[in-house]
Design a protein around this nucleic acid. Structure first.
Lengths: 205, 205
DNA sequence: CGCTATATGTCAGCTATATTGACATATTTC
DNA sequence: GAAATATGTCAATATAGCTGACATATAGCG
């Protein structure tokens, strides 16, 4: 069985103590008898619920790093997402960004306006279609975007021990499979475009 | 290299078409030249950024199922979290719940009051310490909690192909490692308490 | 017995992020 | 020239979080 699920918390740098957690969630263990439910769960949620919770905790800490940094700049998660995706795909149109973020243009606009005003993002009219406003990061926007990206990348690097391809692939496959089946093509397409941007393509003829 | 990252999106049930995505994020590819940045990223973010984004998309879809169901009940994510953790650890105290959720008591109280009023959660005074209000789900609360849990569990089951222990362990280890090092002991402790509740302990005497 | 600490509730006001609906403008396309 | 598209904007609303201040009940201690 999984280490995570059974060994005493001896995983990270001196996890203090198993019976009395460090900063410690309070203990209030024994249900005072007379609960309305059975002692053992009927069907499903054997140990899978552990995964559900681990995903919750992992994501929270994953975004926590960036949140803290953003606070010092007076920005929030919404700004982070815009910076991130514009950094990944410079020249992204508003419509494309809306499609990625799945928010309304009104929501995006508030945040985007702040980033434009702060001089972190720049919008240029599209060359072919002048109705479009294509988004780019300014050097300062890039600096922040990369500072944020580094925080999050480093967590992955730590976890996957500096990325031996098989480990990285396993994680990527797992996360990709967690995405809604009908969204995977879109995500795949997005990643491909980001890779083109990075000059890392090898599909090219 | 990873399937996810290189094969044409032929992963899920008929992903439509690679060059023109199904519901399709818009395409606006070639940066109109004259960008301020280099063509290839300096140091870090090789392919790790893909993982960062996959984590983002995966989490969004992961909570999306539950969000949709909750909407039909007029509840939100905050209610979900309370239902979930009370279901996992019946008899949880307010303080313990606050420690897990990492929100203020004021934030919790608004949501909790609604759940109490709706008759999904019940609070009983602690037997030993009568100041405490220990939380339990009513049968109706349990029903909703499990409906939600099932949605999320099923996603994991689908992904990890009905949970052969090694796959489940790998996922659990990966997610656990993504958690802040100084939080792992607490999470571990929480999982242990949940497991005790489920009568699945084998650490016993 | 009182004093203090703890567990919890509550009022009031603020912020960030999202929503809907309606309407305005510029540009492309047919 | 009309219709469709890409975008911006105003206004109202909801959710989920926050801070600060203050109230109450119970526990624990000397």
């Amino acid at each position: 069985m999984s280490d995570v699920l059974h060994r005493k918390p001896a995983s990270s740098p001196r996890p203090a103590c198993a019976s009395a957690p460090p900063g410690g969630w309070r203990g209030d263990l024994p249900p005072p008898a007379g609960t309305t439910e059975p002692l053992v769960r009927d069907e499903d949620d054997g140990g899978v619920l552990d995964l559900v919770e681990l995903f919750f905790f992992a994501y929270r800490d994953f975004v926590g790093d960036a949140d803290r940094l953003l606070e010092t700049y007076g920005f929030g998660r919404a700004h982070h997402r815009v910076l991130h995706f514009v950094d990944r795909r410079p020249g992204l149109s508003i419509a494309a960004l809306l499609d990625i973020l799945r928010i309304t243009k009104q929501s995006l606009n508030r945040v985007l306006k702040q980033l434009l005003d702060a001089g972190l993002v720049e919008a240029r009219a599209g060359a072919h279609d002048r109705r479009q406003r294509l988004l780019y990061l300014t050097p300062r926007g890039e600096a922040l975007a990369r500072e944020l990206a580094t925080l999050q990348s480093e967590r992955f690097r730590r976890v996957l021990g500096d990325m031996p391809p098989p480990a990285r692939d396993a994680a990527a496959d797992f996360l990709f499979a967690m995405i809604d089946a009908d969204q995977r093509a879109r995500v795949h397409d997005h990643l491909a475009r980001a890779r083109v941007r990075d000059g890392l393509t090898d599909d090219a003829p």
